[in-house]
């Protein structure tokens, strides 16, 4: 289908982009990779007055190290994320989840930051960012601010990025050494969104789980941390039994939707199974 008419701006710097957003009128949409925005515009679910295309803002692309953190530019494509050696070393969970995003064509255009700001509850990266305690650097005309992952997701398709702001980069703490990670995604066909998925990062010490960070995908309007599971795992023995007992808490406090793919009770069941599997794999069992 054909999108409704819209104005189009193509800035080359972050400052220009912010100006274009400010000047774009009532309803501005930022185009990153276009893999969700273009379809919703073609379906006329969204009919923005202005589209600000970040495709030429090269400063937003790429991955770099900054002390204890990886800094991932918002416009880094999924395929660039997958190929990046720093991510492979310090945040393999991101690579593992990114590899499950849609198909190869989508991954070549879709971007890391775009997926996070789109905030699709069935999208894979928000829960990963949450599990990794990422920080979101948001630029506005008044300067930059940093938002922790727990505050970034606000509601269904809604983040802390304000109307005249832009996500510019995501800072992810480097995790290596004794950290193990796993993204367990459950869907029906290869290129589909997650019905439920679980991102787990686990640090082992002396046969015990010292710390676990677990993010849940599509268990509510925003990604969630499985806090009860994390608490149960902290200091627990790294055994299948202990992990299973902890994982049984995965659905606590969740309010997943019921749709064609799954009713809420089944999603909650899946969350426990997938959490057990993700933690087991992350713990190296």
């Amino acid at each position: 289908m054909i999108p409704a008419p819209f104005e189009y701006a193509r800035p080359t710097t972050v400052d220009e982009a912010l100006q274009a957003i400010a000047a774009g009128g009532e309803d501005v949409k930022v185009l990153a990779g276009g893999q969700s925005l273009i379809p919703v515009m073609r379906l006329r679910l969204a009919a923005p007055e202005t589209v600000v295309d970040l495709g030429r803002v090269t400063e937003l692309r790429g991955v770099r190290e900054d002390g204890d953190a990886l800094v991932i530019g918002a416009m880094t494509t999924h395929s660039d994320v997958l190929a990046d050696p720093l991510i492979g070393r310090y945040a393999p969970l991101i690579a593992e989840a990114t590899a499950t995003v849609a198909d190869r064509q989508v991954r070549h255009r879709g971007t890391f930051g775009g997926a996070l700001v789109h905030a699709d509850p069935a999208g894979d990266l928000p829960a990963v960012a949450l599990a990794l305690d990422a920080e979101f650097v948001i630029a506005g005309t008044g300067g930059r601010r940093t938002v922790p992952a727990r505050e970034f997701s606000v509601d269904y398709l809604t983040t802390a990025v304000g109307e005249e702001e832009l996500l510019v980069e995501v800072r992810v703490p480097k995790l290596d050494g004794q950290w193990g990670m796993r993204y367990e995604k459950f869907n029906r066909v290869a290129q589909a969104w997650s019905i439920v998925a679980v991102a787990a990062a686990v640090r082992r010490e002396n046969g015990h789980i010292a710390e676990a960070r677990i993010g849940l995908t599509n268990m509510g309007p925003t990604p969630l941390r499985a806090g009860a599971v994390e608490a149960a795992l902290a200091g627990a023995e790294a055994t299948p039994e202990a992990i299973a007992a902890a994982a049984a808490h995965a659905a606590e406090g969740t309010e997943p939707s019921s749709d064609l793919n799954a009713q809420a009770d089944y999603r909650q069941h899946l969350a426990t199974v997938l959490t057990r599997r993700a933690v087991t794999a992350a713990a190296g069992l």
Partner: peptide, 15 residues
């Protein structure tokens, strides 16, 4: 009936 995503979110980008 139109139900624009924009009414319900601050959809700022996409994947």
């Amino acid at each position: 009936a139109r139900s624009s995503v924009s009414n319900a979110s601050s959809l700022g980008g996409d994947r």
